[in-house]
Design a protein around this nucleic acid. Structure first.
Length: 295
DNA sequence: AAGATGCACAACCGCATTGTG
DNA sequence: ACACAATGCGGTTGTGCATCT
């Protein structure tokens, strides 16, 4: 194999960044953009590997980083997104403007995971522990199965939309799978159809996500709206090539509502099939545990 | 006051994915 | 189609600070 180490040059500095290094990096990027991360250190005069520079910039120096403690709403959103997306921190971070995947990962590992455990909720499955504890739970619980069904529905709709995008999106660039697609799907026509149909039956219009919270409104997650705006508007911060290149769902996708409305009966059926009383009602208690209990 | 312990966060490592020739 | 380079992502570790004993 012989994978090349990321920093083949010996003598590259490691460990915490100093203020001078930060300044050099900021000045360089402001002046030239980061360009190729690999060549950046050489060009800027930093004794760091490109990877380290990229990490420092994206996790700390970027001007749009929101610093400071997470709000309760942000924490709830992270929990709910984690229930859907799992440990896909970058995808979760894309829903929290100004927050980095690293920050969210740390939040999860240091606070939220423990809080859920204290609440008797398995952080892996987001479901209450049975008496036997987390490990004795069968993996294929109804909620887990529905997550899988959602994923299937997502993939199906995604494939279909990719096809449609050839007609509705200009320029006709290929649509790549997007970590945020699942969320946008919910905010899209498919989700809309679900909300309408399900709403008639239930006089409610909560998403499978927000169904977790009994007090939520349409398009919100425990009072926190999952806003796809920044993504659709392309105002999200530069991320990986996988997360940028957003699909324009606002105008172009809505305009194809006819296609979307009949989109994938299977997918819609799966959406409709999502259990009303899933096991995520614990999220209502998150407020209670804003200050973690001693456990 | 000093050492031990725990916590939070920044940074690193290595694999996965994507881009390019 | 393939190989290689570049980059992104998630898991893990290291470090500094706060609190406890």
């Amino acid at each position: 194999m012989g994978r090349r180490p990321c920093c083949e040059r010996k003598g590259l500095k490691k460990g915490p960044w100093g203020p001078e290094e930060d300044e050099i990096l900021i000045n360089y990027i402001n002046k030239h953009g980061h360009g190729s991360w690999r060549s950046l250190p050489k060009l800027s005069g930093l004794s760091r590997c490109g990877k380290s520079c990229r990490l420092r910039w994206t996790n700390y120096l970027r001007p749009d980083i929101k610093r400071g403690p997470f709000t309760l709403d942000e924490e709830k959103l992270v929990i709910q997104l984690h229930a859907i997306l799992g440990n896909r921190w970058a995808a979760i971070a894309s829903q929290l403007p100004g927050r980095t995947d690293n920050e969210i990962k740390n939040l999860w590992n240091t606070h939220l995971k423990k809080r859920l455990l204290c609440m008797g909720v398995d952080p892996l499955t987001h479901e209450p522990f049975t008496s036997g504890g987390p490990t004795t739970r069968p993996r294929s619980s109804p909620a887990t199965r529905h997550m899988a069904q959602w994923e299937s529905a997502r993939l199906e709709a995604e494939a279909r939309l990719s096809k449609e995008s050839l007609f509705f999106i200009s320029p006709p660039t290929s649509v790549k799978p997007d970590p945020d697609f699942f969320l946008r799907l919910w905010n899209s026509e498919v989700g809309e159809s679900f909300r309408k149909l399900n709403g008639e039956a239930k006089a409610d219009c909560r998403s499978p996500i927000s169904q977790a919270s009994s007090s939520t409104k349409c398009g919100s997650v425990s009072g926190v709206t999952i806003d796809v705006g920044p993504i659709a508007a392309g105002s999200s911060t530069p991320k990986s090539s996988r997360t940028e290149d957003p699909i324009m769902f606002d105008a172009s996708f809505s305009s194809s509502s006819n296609e979307s409305e009949d989109s994938s009966d299977t997918a819609l059926q799966l959406l409709l099939d999502f259990p009303i009383n899933n096991d995520m009602s614990f999220l209502d208690d998150v407020d209670t545990y804003a200050t973690p209990p001693q456990c």
